[in-house]
Design a protein around this nucleic acid. Structure first.
Length: 507
RNA sequence: GGUCCGUUCGUCUAGGGGUUAGGACGCCAAGCUUUCGUCUUGGUAACAGGGGUUCGAUUCCCUUACGGACUACCA
C-alpha cells in the first residue's frame, strides 16, 4: 500500500482565477478522487505587492460553482493548516537558515540595481548572465565574507536575501509523469532567491516546505513550472526530504494567433476566460464569467477535461463522476491545446437540452420579468415550461431563449421582408377564411387545430404553402420558430386571430 | 541570446512499423420539417521538411524548421 494521494491546487490571489488555472485545479481534483485521495487548496500569497482583495474568495467560490471544491482549505478540515502562506510566514525563515547551516544556501547582499547592472554588462558582451557558481563568489555574498562580518551586516538590518547554492557539475535526471525523463545541467541553473528581503519566502521555498509539511504526494501544475523542476528537486534533496511526483500539464493556448491564453484574451475574442464575472477594483473594468454568460458548470468542466486529455474512446460527454472514473494522468498530452470556443458552446448546448424543462423555465422567468411584458398573454408557469420545451433544442444558452421565443409573448411588430413576398393578392381572403375556420374550433390544441386546418385545405384544394407561409408570417413575423400549431396552441385562439387580422391589415 | 518542452484534418483528438489514418467541433450538401432549428446521411480536410534504421515508417533515432514555456527579491 503506497501512501495516501494528496494533491493541491495552489493559486496566487492576484486576481480572478483564469481558465488555465481552473483546468489545473480540475486535473488535481480528478486525480485525487480517482485515487481516493485528498484535494486541497493552498493560497500562495507570498507576494504582498500583488495581493488583490477578493481574489481568494473568488477562487473558492469558483471551485464551488464548478463542483470541484477542495476537501481541505482555509476554514475546512484544516488538518495541515494554515492553508494560507501569509499565515505560515514564521515557518519559512527557519528552513532557509537550515539550508544555510547545511551549506546549501547563502546570504546575498547585492541590490537589485547592482544585479541589473551586472546583467546588462554581461549581455552587452553577448554573454548570458547566470547568478551561479561562476560569479557568486565575486558578488556581495556571505560566501566571500566572514561569518562575523555576515552576522554584523544582518544585525545592522542591512537588506539581504537568501539564495540557493546550486551544486556544480551535475546532470539531473528527473522524471515527469507526463513528459517522461527530463535532463538538466546544474551548471546552467540560477542560484534562485529563496528568502526575500521583506521577510517572506519566495514561491520556491514556500512551495517545497509546504508541500512537504502538507504531505503532498503529487505536484500537478502547469507547464510554466517545468523549468523550476530541477531547483525544486534539488531543494527536496538539500532538506533530505522525499520529493513528490511531478506532472506538468500542457498549456491552454489562444484560439487564434500564438501564445498561451491570457487573462486579457477573454472578452476581446468573444468568450470568457474566467469562471465567474470579475470587476477589477482599480480600473473598474468588468470581465465576463462563464457563470454569468449562462454556461453550465458541467459543460465547462467537460470541455476543459477534454483539453489535453481523453480516455481513448470516442466518448465526448462526461459527467464529473465519469471523468473521475476515466481520468488517468498517463493519458494527458504533452503539447498545448488551443481553446475552441465553438466546441465549448456546442457542449453547453448538449447540457442545455438535457436539462428539465421546468428547471429551464425557472431560469428563463427572470429574463422575461425584465422585459416588462404586458400581461395580455397570461403566461402561466405551465405555459412557460411548454414554451421552453419547444425552443430549447435551438439554443446554446438560456440567454438565447428570448430571441428565439419572443413571438410567444409579443405579437410581431414587423414582418420579414423576404417572407412577405409570398403574401399574394389572394392571401388576405384566404387568411380571412382561416380565421373563420379557427373561430369554430373549441378544443384549441395543437393536434386538433392541425387536423381541422389541414382538412379545410384538402377539401378546398388549397395548397399548403399558400396557407402555412402567410399563417406563420402572421404569427411569428418571420420564417422561423417551432411547429406552427404548437405556437398557436400556446398563444391561444384569440391572440392567433388578432395576429392574423393584423397581418391582413398591414400587409 | 540561453535552458527546457512540443509538432496527426482549420480546432480538440484516436492510432501506431504494413490501416481506405478513425471520431468530435466547425464548414458544405442531401433527407426530414412546405419555415428555422434539432435530427439522419454524406462530404471537406491531417501524419511539418530532410536524413537514417528497416523488406517496409506517419509510428523508432538524428537533424532542420516552426511553435511554446521559462529566463524577477511574481507566482
Amino acid at each position: 500500500m503506497s501512501k495516501q494521494v494528496r494533491v493541491r491546487f495552489a493559486p496566487s490571489p492576484t486576481g480572478p482565477l483564469h481558465i488555465g488555472g481552473v483546468r489545473t485545479a480540475l486535473f488535481n481534483y480528478l486525480f485525487a478522487k480517482k485515487n481516493n485521495g485528498v484535494f486541497f487548496l493552498r493560497i500562495e500569497d507570498t507576494d504582498q505587492n500583488r495581493f488583490v482583495p477578493g481574489a481568494e474568495a473568488y477562487i473558492m467560490e469558483a471551485l464551488e460553482w464548478l463542483g470541484i471544491a477542495p476537501d481541505e482549505t482555509i476554514g475546512k478540515n484544516e488538518k495541515y493548516g494554515p492553508y494560507r502562506q501569509s499565515d505560515r510566514k514564521d515557518l519559512y525563515q527557519k528552513y532557509a537558515v537550515e539550508l544555510i547551516n547545511s551549506g546549501n544556501a547563502y546570504y546575498a547582499f547585492d541590490t537589485t540595481d547592482d544585479l541589473d547592472a551586472a546583467r546588462k554588462l554581461e549581455e552587452e558582451q553577448g554573454k548570458t548572465f547566470i547568478y551561479n557558481h561562476t560569479n557568486r563568489e565575486k558578488l556581495d555574498t556571505s560566501l566571500v565574507i566572514s561569518a562575523d562580518e555576515t552576522a554584523k551586516r544582518i544585525a545592522n538590518s542591512e537588506h539581504y536575501v537568501i539564495r540557493f547554492k546550486t551544486p556544480v557539475n551535475e546532470t539531473l535526471h528527473l522524471h515527469d509523469i507526463i513528459r517522461g525523463d527530463v535532463k538538466f545541467e546544474t551548471n546552467l541553473l540560477d542560484d534562485k532567491v529563496l528568502f526575500k528581503s521583506d521577510g517572506m519566502p519566495t514561491y520556491h521555498l514556500a512551495n517545497i516546505v509546504d508541500d512537504h509539511l502538507m504531505e503532498t504526494s503529487h505536484v500537478i501544475r502547469g507547464e510554466e513550472w517545468l523549468p523550476s523542476m530541477p531547483l525544486h528537486a534539488l531543494l527536496y534533496r538539500a532538506f533530505g526530504w522525499e520529493a513528490p511526483k511531478f506532472a506538468h500539464l500542457p498549456l491552454i493556448m489562444k484560439p487564434v494567433g500564438n501564445g498561451k491564453l491570457s487573462k486579457r484574451d477573454g472578452d476581446k475574442m468573444g468568450f470568457p476566460v474566467f469562471p465567474l464575472e470579475w470587476t477589477d477594483a482599480s480600473s473598474m473594468t468588468k470581465s465576463s464569467g462563464y457563470r454569468e454568460k449562462g454556461f453550465f458548470p458541467e459543460a465547462v468542466i467537460n470541455f476543459l477535461a477534454l483539453l489535453g486529455w481523453n480516455d481513448a474512446t470516442e466518448k465526448e460527454i462526461f459527467s464529473l463522476e465519469e471523468l473521475v472514473e476515466a481520468f488517468d494522468l498517463d493519458r494527458v498530452h504533452k503539447s498545448g491545446a488551443k481553446f475552441d470556443p465553438d466546441k465549448n458552446k456546442w457542449l453547453n448546448h448538449q447540457y442545455l437540452i438535457k436539462q428539465e424543462d421546468v428547471t429551464l423555465a425557472k431560469a428563463f422567468a427572470p429574463i422575461l420579468a425584465e422585459k416588462n411584458l404586458s400581461t395580455a398573454l397570461d403566461m402561466t408557469d405551465e405555459k412557460l415550461t411548454k414554451v421552453v420545451s419547444l425552443i430549447k433544442e435551438r439554443a446554446n444558452f438560456v440567454s438565447d431563449f428570448w430571441d428565439i421565443s419572443d413571438f410567444f409573448f409579443v405579437a410581431p411588430t414587423a414582418y420579414d421582408e423576404k417572407a412577405s413576398k409570398n403574401w399574394k393578392a389572394e392571401t388576405p381572403a384566404l387568411m380571412q377564411e382561416l380565421i373563420t375556420v379557427l373561430e369554430k374550433i373549441t378544443d384549441f390544441t395543437s393536434m386538433n387545430i392541425e387536423t381541422i386546418v389541414k382538412d379545410w385545405m384538402t377539401k378546398n384544394e388549397i395548397g399548403m404553402g399558400k396557407v402555412m407561409q402567410p399563417f406563420r408570417l402572421s404569427i411569428v413575423g418571420a420564417p422561423r420558430g417551432p411547429h406552427l400549431f404548437d405556437i398557436v396552441e400556446v398563444i391561444g385562439k384569440q391572440e392567433t386571430i388578432t395576429r392574423i387580422q393584423k397581418a391582413i391589415n398591414t400587409l
